[in-house]
Nucleic acid binder design. Structure first.
Lengths: 155, 155
DNA sequence: CCATTGCTTATGAAATTTCATAAATTTCAG
DNA sequence: CTGAAATTTATGAAATTTCATAAGCAATGG
């Protein structure tokens, strides 16, 4: 086994704490792409909404909040801004008048498509940078964790 | 029920996107513990600072910001509140008068110790629930990614 | 029906975070 | 030594997020 921590002695609690390792790995890897978003003037929450709607149009506000890891009032206000900026539009649901469905505008589609392409390229770079077997296994592992975590009762 | 497919044919871009899977897994698992924090009236950023100082006293403001995945001005203001609440104190560095070193107060130590215990318990529960995470040495995997990601030049 | 309960989105005030920049040191080249 | 550059923390205004709750609609039981 190679030496994983060359700098400080791993006396810190967090260096052996799964939740922290997950958060830090996620943050580190995402930061690179977030820097690309920043250059294009797109915030992370906006990117998440755009990405969530690619391949899944007509999400509800609550659904988007869940997928984007945001709270519902945060999503409502984020959508206000995205509507203002012409990225998405709100549509009413046919069956339930409480529900608001969100769809990309033409501009939103164009920007999403471009960003998704950049994201795929970046993901490929990341996977190339890390040992392939590990990275590929990681995706399945994460999917499993997400599935089990999302519904602890069922299976 | 529009489509109750349980195995989710990945139509959505994000369902096969590594950065999203990492973020979602991290968020889902952490949310459970964050709920515990919430009941105790401790915010996530405060918890991160407390946890960061356990086993690593005298961190600098910038160092804490990095470890806690926050920006430096955010950390400065977070520390203002934590000092106000008697959780940490600022100390000056012996060699460099620009540097502010942060240490836990007695109260901060007590709360940290309690929370770290709860965190360890929760981590054990999570690992018990996700046996394959343990089997695959997820922690080592993440540590490897963090190490490689942190310094892309070295290896 | 009607009342009750639950679900979905919106809103307002307060708290937090961000962005840009200032202020105070330290470091370094010459 | 001196001035420029780099580093570290703090600050202020603006933007965003959060918390609690309101408002509207749907579903349910009696």
């Amino acid at each position: 086994m190679p030496q994983p921590s060359p700098d400080a002695p791993p006396q810190r609690f967090i260096d052996d704490y799964l939740l922290y390792l997950l958060a830090r790995a996620s943050h580190l890897i995402s930061s690179e792409f977030h820097e690309q978003l920043r250059r294009r003037g797109i915030s992370v929450p906006v990117w998440r909404v755009l990405a969530s709607l690619v391949g899944s149009p007509g999400e509800t506000v609550t659904g988007l909040a869940d997928v984007c890891l945001l709270q519902q009032p945060t999503m409502t206000k984020l959508l206000d801004r995205m509507v203002r900026d012409g990225l998405v539009r709100r549509m009413q649901d046919a069956r339930d008048r409480r529900v608001v469905r969100v769809a990309l505008t033409a501009r939103g589609e164009a920007i999403s498509a471009e960003l998704v392409q950049a994201a795929r390229q970046h993901e490929a770079d990341v996977l190339a940078r890390h040992p392939e077997a590990e990275a590929m296994a990681l995706k399945d592992l994460l999917r499993g964790i997400i599935a089990r975590q999302a519904r602890p009762r069922r299976a």
